[in-house]
C-alpha cells in the first residue's frame, strides 16, 4: 500500500519529502558534531585506557565512526523513503 502511495506521489510531494530528508540529514550532522565533541574533548581529562588507548581516542575515533554508521542506518533504512525518480508524474 505504502509503495503504491509513493509511486503515485506527485512532484510537490516528492520535493517536500526530499526537503524533509535533507533536514533530517542536517540534524543528524548536528547530533554527530555534539557526540564528537563530548566523545573526544569531553572525556580527554579522564585517565581511562582500554587496550593501551585513552578513552577519548577510542570514543573520538571508532565511537564517532560507529555513531555515523548508526546515523546512516537510521536515515537510510527508517527515515528516508523510496520514491520514483522518473519525474513524469508531476501532474502538470
Amino acid at each position: 500500500m505504502k509503495q503504491n502511495n509513493r509511486a503515485s506521489m506527485n512532484d510537490a510531494q516528492k520535493f517536500s519529502l526530499v526537503r524533509r530528508e535533507a533536514i533530517y540529514t542536517g540534524l543528524a550532522l548536528v547530533g554527530l558534531i555534539i557526540f564528537w565533541l563530548i566523545a573526544g574533548f569531553g572525556t580527554a581529562s579522564l585517565d581511562v585506557k582500554i587496550f593501551h588507548l585513552p578513552l577519548w581516542a577510542i570514543l573520538g575515533s571508532i565511537g564517532v565512526w560507529l555513531v555515523a554508521i548508526l546515523i546512516s542506518f537510521v536515515l537510510s533504512k527508517i527515515l528516508f523513503k523510496d520514491i520514483d525518480l522518473g519525474g513524469d508524474d508531476d501532474g502538470r
Binding site: F15, V18, G26, W36, V64, W65, S72, L85
Partner: peptide, 20 residues
C-alpha cells in the same frame, strides 16, 4: 574522523534532489 560525515551528508542532502 570528521570525514565519516562526507558520504551520508552529500547523498542525504543532495542525492535525491539532484536526481529528481
Amino acid at each position: 574522523v570528521v570525514q565519516v560525515t562526507a558520504i551520508f551528508l552529500v547523498l542525504g542532502i543532495f542525492g535525491k534532489r539532484v536526481a529528481l
